[in-house]
Amino acid sequence: MLVDSHCHLDFPDFAEELDAVVDRARRAGVGRMVTICTYLSRFDRILAVAERYDDVLCSLGVHPHQAAEEIAGVSVERLVELSKHPKVIGLGETGLDYFYDKSPRDVQQECFRRHIRASLETGLPLIVHTRDADDDTMRIVREEAAGQPVNGLLHCFSSGRQLAEEALDFGFYISLSGIVTFKKSEDLRAIVKDVPLDRILVETDAPYLAPIPFRGKRNEPAYVAHTAACVAGVKGVDEAEMARISTENFFRLFPRAGSAEQAVA
């Protein structure tokens, strides 16, 4: 069994064949999919997808690209209240994106801080997006945590070794997307080689970042198998073992998701 820990099934890319996309994932051995919230104002759409399928879970949060547009409606109290729905297993995706800077950096940071505070209050893990913002990402997490444990992951990891080490030292997990399969990703694969097996998750970020051999096409949850196979090769384990380990890691990080035994029952 595999888990696609990060996809966007509510996106228009899937609207006309969502049932078929989910069915292909199941036939590829994907037992759980997490459809990720990027607009708090559109959470009802996310929840509708999650409620439609027993094997789809969801998150709650605001992407840093949307922080300026959404910040007025983002409060710790609202995040805490909406996160009570049993399909919600994590908070995000949240974080910082200084590559595109689609929202002012101070607004991104404030939005991120509110998600961290909600995580501390609820115990739900953070799903962190970070791009060209390595130093500020972990600094803000540490500041808000103030010595308290915060669970979370760095999604679609493609940053440098220092951020990976800091995140791992803090207790975070590293989630790997199709980027790890790209020919140009030698540096990323070198970092992955040193990430402990018990801290690795896999994801698609579908419809984006399709792995080799589908690069350039629309991504979908079934393709997480190709990412997991690549990671297995980097880590020197067989594909079945990588599937087992990454699935166990997912359920350890996201206890509200249940267990692998429940997923295959």
Rank of each mutant, 00 (worst) to 15 (best):
Leu163Gln: 05
His155Asp: 15
Lys102Tyr: 05
Ile127Arg: 05
Arg78Gln: 07
Gly73Val: 03
Ser75Phe: 00
Gln162Phe: 01
Arg105Ala: 07
Glu144Met: 09
Glu143Trp: 01
Cys58Trp: 01
Thr130Ile: 11
Asp134Asn: 13
Asp132Asn: 15
Ile116Lys: 06
Val80Tyr: 04
Pro86Lys: 07
Thr130Pro: 06
Thr130Gly: 01
Phe157Met: 13
Asp136His: 03
Pro149Gln: 07
Lys102Ile: 00
Ala133Val: 07
Gly95Ser: 05
Ala145Cys: 10
Gly73Ile: 07
Ser83Asp: 09
Leu124Ile: 01
Glu166Asn: 10
Leu168His: 09
Leu60Arg: 02
Ala133Ile: 06
Glu165Gly: 11
Arg105Asn: 04
Pro104Trp: 02
Gly123Trp: 04
Leu82Phe: 06
Gln108Ser: 10
Asp136Arg: 04
Val150Met: 01
Val150Leu: 02
Leu57Trp: 10
Ser83Phe: 02
Ser59Thr: 15
Ala72Lys: 08
Glu93Thr: 00
Thr130Asp: 06
Leu153Met: 14
Leu163Ala: 03
Gln148Arg: 13
Gly95Glu: 08
Arg113Asn: 12
Cys111His: 09
Glu165Arg: 12
Asn151Ala: 09
Leu120Phe: 04
Asp106Gly: 04
Glu93Val: 00
Asn151Phe: 01
Leu57Arg: 05
Gln148Asp: 15
Arg78Leu: 00
Pro149Asp: 14
Cys111Glu: 09
Arg139Ser: 15
Tyr100Ala: 08
Val80Asp: 14
His129Thr: 02
Lys84Asp: 11
Lys87Ile: 00
Ala67Gln: 08
Gly73Met: 06
Lys102Gln: 12
Val80Ser: 03
Cys111Val: 15
Ala118Asn: 05
Ala118Gln: 06
Gln109Glu: 15
Ser103Leu: 04
Ser103Ala: 11
Leu126Gly: 13
Asp97Met: 07
Gly73Tyr: 02
Asp136Ile: 01
Asp97Arg: 05
Glu77Lys: 04
Asp169Asn: 08
Leu126Tyr: 00
Leu163Tyr: 04
Glu121Lys: 13
Glu143Ile: 01
Val150Phe: 00
Ser158Cys: 14
Ala67Phe: 04
Thr122Gly: 10
Leu120Asp: 14
Leu120His: 10
Ser75Gln: 13
Leu163Val: 07
Glu93Tyr: 01
Gly152Met: 03
Ala146Lys: 03
Leu96Ser: 10
Gln109Tyr: 01
Phe172Pro: 00
Asp134Thr: 12
Arg161Gly: 03
Val74Ser: 14
Ser119Asp: 12
Leu57Met: 14
Leu79Glu: 12
Phe172Gln: 04
Ala68Arg: 05
Cys111Gly: 12
Glu70Asp: 12
Val62Ile: 07
Phe170Asn: 10
Leu82Val: 14
Asp132Glu: 15
Ile140Ala: 09
Ala72Met: 02
His115Phe: 05
Leu91Asp: 10
Met138Tyr: 05
Val141Ile: 14
Leu168Lys: 05
Tyr100Lys: 14
Pro64Asp: 07
Cys156Thr: 12
Glu69Asn: 09
Val141Leu: 15
Val141Lys: 04
Thr137Ser: 11
Val76Leu: 00
Val150Gly: 03
Glu110Asn: 12
Thr130Ala: 03
Val88Tyr: 09
Ile140Val: 06
Thr130Leu: 01
Ala67Gly: 13
Leu91Pro: 11
Leu120Ser: 14
Gly171Val: 06
Glu144Gly: 12
Met138Lys: 08
Arg114Gly: 04
Ser159Leu: 00
Gly90Gln: 06
Gly95Met: 03
Val80Thr: 07
Val150Lys: 04
Gly171Ala: 11
Tyr100Met: 10
Phe172Cys: 07
